[in-house]
Design a protein around this nucleic acid. Structure first.
Lengths: 205, 205, 205, 205
DNA sequence: GATGAATGAGAGTTCATTCAT
DNA sequence: CATGAATGAACTCTCATTCAT
C-alpha cells in the first residue's frame, strides 16, 4: 500500500495554468455535489473542466490529489472564517462570541452543503496529509484561544469536544434537511454553552 | 441511476446456508476494518469467507447488499443495547440514566471501532433502506421516551440533538485515538446534561 | 471443440420420469417463446418445470440436449402433419394437393410461432444431430413423392427448392406480423405453382 | 429488459481511430465466420483485432453494437449492389432484369457466406435498430420500383414476397453447400418469374 | 432417485494512467 | 505543453454443472 501523492504537481504560476487548475477543481466539486464520489472519474472531471486528461495529470498526480486539494481548500476557508469570527468576538461576552463562531461554522456548511458532505466522507477514507491535519489543529487552536481568553480551564481539550459536538449536531441537522438556520444556530449555542456551564466531571452521583 | 437492491436474496433456512451467509458477512466486516471500503470487492469477500463468488451472489444481490446488511445488524444491536440501558435506568435519576445510556452507546462504538467507523462512512454514501431508517428513528424514540419520562419538554427534538452531538463527540474522540473510556463517558455526560440544563433558546443576549 | 451430447440421457419408461421430462421440455419451450434463447438457463428451466436442477440433468446431459429435443419434436410433428396432408391429397389435382400441404406447413408455423422462430435460430447455431437431419430429408422426400406422382421431373431438386422458398416466404410474412392466413396460403400456392409451371432453365434470353 | 444501445459510441475522425474501429469490426466478422456468434466475446474480438478491450469500448458500447454495425454494413452493401443492378436493368426485359438482380443478390451472399449466415441469425435475435429497418425497406422499394416499371400490379406486396422467397431459397442452397452458382441463379430466376406469371390469387381451383 | 447449495471459469465493462502525436 | 487514443488490470456478476445430503 504505497500512499498516493496528495499534493498538486506544481504550483501554477502562469495565468493559464491557474485557470486550468481551477477549472479542474470546480469540475470535480460539481460532480461530487451532483453525483457523489463514485461518479468522480478523472476522464469525466477533465471533460467537464473542458480540459484533456493529459492536462489534468499535468497538474495533479492523480484523482486523490484533486480530492485532497478540494479538502484543503474547504479547510482553509473554514479556518479563515472562524478566525474572522473570533476576532470580531474579541471584545464581546462569551455567549456572543459563541454565537458568532457557531454562525460562522454553520454558514460554512451551508454554502455548498452537498459538496461539504461529500468531501467529509471522502476525507474519512483518504490518508490525511500533513497540511489538512495542521488546518484541523489550527481550527481547534482558534477555539481554544477564545475559550482561554474567557478564563475557561483546560481550553484545548474543551475546544476539541466543542468542535466535535458542533460538527455532529450540524451535520445531522443539515442531512436531515433542517432549513431553519436561526433555530439551528440557537441549538448549537445551547449545546456549547451548556457544555461550558456544566460541571466538568464525575462529581455528580 | 438504478438503485441497487439492498435486501438479501434469500433468507437461508438450512444450516449450511446460514453458515455461508454468516461467513460472507464476517469476511466483509474484517476487510472493512482492516482495509476500508475501497478494498471490499465481491471476489475478495468470497475468498476471505472461504466461499465461492457464486455462493456469495446466491445470498446477496451485490456488494451494496452486504454492506447494507452489516449496517442493519449494527443498528439492530445498537437499538437493543440502548433499550436495555433505558430500562435499567427506569428508576434512576436523569444523571444516572444518561450515564448508563452514554456508556451503552460508547460500548457499542468500542467493540469494533474500525468497523463502526467504516460502516458509518459507507452508510452516508448508500441509499438508506427502509429498515435502517426505521431503526434510526427507533433509537431516537428510546431517547425521547427517557427524556419525556423526566419531564423534559420538546423531547423529540432534544433527542435528535443529543444523539447527534454524542455521535459527533464520540466519533471524533475515538478517531483521535482516545483510550480513556471513563473520561470520555464523563465528557459525553457533561455535553448531554449541559444541553439539557441550558436555557432552550434566544432568551440570552 | 468437443461436440456436446444432444441425445437425452435415458428414454424414460416410468410414468413419473416421463412427466418430469415433459415438464422440462415444456418449461424450456415457454421460456424460449416468452424471452428468447438468451434467457434459457438450466436453473430457470428446472425452476419453471417445478423440478430440481439435479433432476433435469438426470434426463438431459445439458442445455443443448433440451434444445435439440425440442427441435426434434417440432420436426417430427412437421413430418407427420405433412405426411397426412400428402395422403389426403393423393387423389386430388396438383393445385389442390399443393394447397393442402401449404396449409399444413403454415398451420405448423402458427401453432406456436414464437417457439418455432426461436428454435429455428437455435438450430442454425447447433451442430445438427443425425435424427434432425434425417427428419429434414424425410420432409423433402414427402414433397418429392407428391411431385413425382404428378409427373414432375427432377422431383428431388424441385422439392428442395419448394420447401426452401416456402420456408423463406412464410417466415418473413409471419415475422412481419401477417395475420391474413388465407391470403398467405394463396401467396405460397402462387409461389409453388409458379415455380412448377415456369420453364426449368436458361432457355430464355 | 433495457434495450442495449446499438449505435457506435463515437464516429472516429482521426486515422488511428478509424483503423481501430475497422480492426474491431473485421475481427468480429472473422470470429463470426469461423466460430459462430457464441464465440464472439468482447475480449476475444479485441485480442483478434490487436487492440485492447478498452479501445473496443471506446467505439462500441457493447458486443451488440458491433454486431449491429456489421449488419448495417452488410445491408448497406446489399442496397448499393441491388440499386446498381436495378439501374443496369433499366432498359432490359423483365427476365433480364430479374437475372441481373438475382445474380447481384447471390453475389452478395457469396462473398462471405458464413458471415452472412451468422449475421442473419444474429439479426433475428437483436432488437432491430431504425437504420437497419430502413435499409430493409429500401431494398424492397428498389425491387418494387422495378416491378412497377414493368407494369406489375401490387408491386410492393409482390416485392415483399419475392425478396423473401429468394432469401429462403438461396440461404438453404448455400447452407446445403451448393456450388453451382449459375444453376442456382437459374433456379431463383425460375422462382421469381414463376411467381410473377402465376395468377395472383384464389381464382384457380 | 431427488435435491439445491456450492462451484468457478469466464463474460462484460470501467477507469486511472500513459505516451505518441 | 496540450491532446485524447490506447491500455489492461481489476471488478461485478452469471450460469452450466457437480455432488454431498
Amino acid at each position: 500500500m504505497t500512499e498516493p501523492e496528495l499534493r498538486p504537481r506544481k504550483t501554477p504560476l502562469q495565468t493559464r495554468s491557474k485557470a486550468t487548475c481551477a477549472a479542474v477543481l470546480e469540475a470535480a466539486a460539481r460532480i461530487l455535489e451532483a453525483e457523489g464520489s463514485h461518479a468522480l472519474t478523472t476522464n469525466r472531471v477533465a471533460e467537464r473542466a473542458g480540459v484533456s486528461v493529459g492536462s489534468l495529470y499535468q497538474y495533479f498526480p492523480g484523482k486523490e490529489a484533486i480530492l485532497a486539494e478540494l479538502i484543503r481548500g474547504l479547510r482553509r476557508d473554514m479556518v479563515l472564517t472562524m478566525r474572522r469570527a473570533a476576532d470580531l468576538g474579541r471584545e464581546e461576552s462569551l455567549a456572543s462570541t459563541v454565537e458568532l463562531m457557531v454562525a460562522a461554522a454553520l454558514e460554512h456548511h451551508l454554502t455548498r452543503p452537498e459538496l461539504a458532505r461529500a468531501l467529509e466522507r471522502v476525507e474519512a477514507e483518504l490518508p490525511v496529509d500533513a497540511e489538512t491535519r495542521e488546518l484541523k489543529g489550527e481550527l481547534r487552536n482558534i477555539v481554544a484561544d477564545v475559550l482561554a481568553g474567557h478564563g475557561i480551564a483546560d481550553a484545548e481539550s474543551v475546544a476539541f469536544d466543542l468542535v466535535a459536538l458542533c460538527h455532529g449536531l450540524s451535520s445531522a441537522a443539515i442531512e436531515a434537511g433542517e432549513k431553519d438556520i436561526n433555530g439551528l444556530t440557537l441549538r448549537l449555542k445551547r449545546a456549547v454553552l451548556g457544555y461550558l456551564v456544566a460541571e466538568p466531571a464525575g462529581t455528580s452521583r
